[in-house]
Amino acid sequence: MLLIHCPYCEEDRPEVEFANGGQAHIARPADPSAYSDPQWEEFLYIRRNPRGRHHERWRHVHGCGRFFNAVRDTVSDRFETTYKAGEPAR
C-alpha cells in the first residue's frame, strides 16, 4: 500500500484513503463548443501511458477530500512529488 503525501494535509497518508483520478492537467476548455470534433475527441479520450514519469490526479477522498496532482514513476510506483490542484505542472 502506497503512502501518499497529501499537499493539503501536509502529511503522508495511506493509499486506502485516496482515489486515483486519471491523468492530470487536462483542462476543460472554457468554451467546448469552439472545439472541433477531433479536438474534443482528444480532450475526452486521448491519454498518455508513459513508462516512467507520469502526472496524475488523486483525491484524498477519505481525508481532507481534496483533489491534487502528483508526479509518479509508473515503473517504480514512487511518488516524485505532489502539489495542490491549480498549481503548474512539476
Binding site: G21, R59, F67, A85
Partner: peptide, 13 residues
C-alpha cells in the same frame, strides 16, 4: 458527489 467535487475543485474553483 465525487463528480461534483471534481468539477468544483478542479474546473470551477
Amino acid at each position: 458527489l465525487n463528480m461534483m467535487e471534481d468539477y468544483l475543485q478542479t474546473e470551477w474553483s
